[in-house]
């Protein structure tokens, strides 16, 4: 009963059997966590935009270039899929300064995630272009467009609609990967939460809030991806 009375005296501050979670503390750290979630979103959106740009560039190169460039790009795709994301992040983190590119953590994170996302972006774009009717390309060539014009004026604009659902899904995956950036001390959501845990030694509250924020963001994106897919199919 003593825990009961204690809980009544300090309603939200004691972690007794009455209230397991320290709601007050969770509310206190919420602004910090929301700001960090914003950083996570920022990094991920930038990375996805860049990786799509890189993906379009590499896909074009692959479709128009010779066998050698095709093999090179295939090797790149295999590399991004075959090496753990954490190792790729470490590679970017340590290798960029070696080549004289010194970026702050935020942009290092963006570059690393772009690298991770580009391999998948290539696959998404290739899949969308291949799903288009063959007649589109043939008639464009027959009308006298060059291969490059065909791609950019005819095929990519049509593929763009089909890219949207898998792209949203890809954004969700990149956000999950962005949590790994905490190991190179990018101040994103996981890093901030981890710092709070070891500053106050409060574990469960912070983890629940962290998971909750991720579920809202990623769950929302997965839902959006599904909704978009239904619309494009209809």
């Amino acid at each position: 009963m003593s825990s009961d009375s204690r809980a009544r005296l300090k309603p939200w501050t004691s972690a007794s059997a009455m209230n397991v979670l320290d709601i007050q503390f969770m509310l206190e750290i919420l602004p910090k966590m929301l700001f960090a979630a914003l950083v996570t979103l920022e990094i991920s959106v930038l990375a996805v935009v860049f990786s799509i740009a890189l993906g379009i560039l590499l896909t074009t190169w692959k479709l128009l270039g010779g066998k050698v460039s095709g093999a090179l790009i295939q090797a790149f795709v295999e590399f991004t899929r075959g090496v753990p994301q954490l190792v790729q992040i470490a590679i970017i983190y340590f290798a960029l300064p070696r080549f004289g590119v010194v970026l702050n953590e935020f942009w290092t994170g963006v570059v690393a995630l772009t690298f991770i996302g580009a391999g998948y972006a290539i696959e998404i774009i290739r899949g969308a272009v291949e799903s288009l009717d063959r007649g589109q390309r043939e008639s464009a060539i027959a009308l006298g467009l060059s291969e490059l014009q065909t791609l950019f004026l005819v095929l990519y604009p049509q593929a763009a609609r089909r890219i949207l659902p898998p792209l949203t899904n890809e954004l969700a995956n990149v956000i999950k990967a962005s949590a790994l950036l905490s190991v190179i001390s990018v101040n994103e959501l996981t890093k901030v939460a981890n710092d709070i845990i070891f500053e106050y030694f409060v574990v469960i509250e912070v983890l629940i809030e962290l998971a909750g924020l991720y579920i809202v963001i990623i769950g929302g994106l997965i839902w959006l991806s599904r909704a978009l897919e239904k619309r494009t199919r209809a």
């Binding site: 949590a179 996981t190 574990v203 469960i204």
Partner: peptide, 19 residues
């Protein structure tokens, strides 16, 4: 399934380690 799919693996690992 929703919990697993919507949280990053590193968060799950931290959670297992700390909880």
């Amino acid at each position: 399934v929703g919990l697993v799919r919507c949280t990053p693996i590193i968060v799950q690992i931290y959670a297992a380690y700390l909880l």
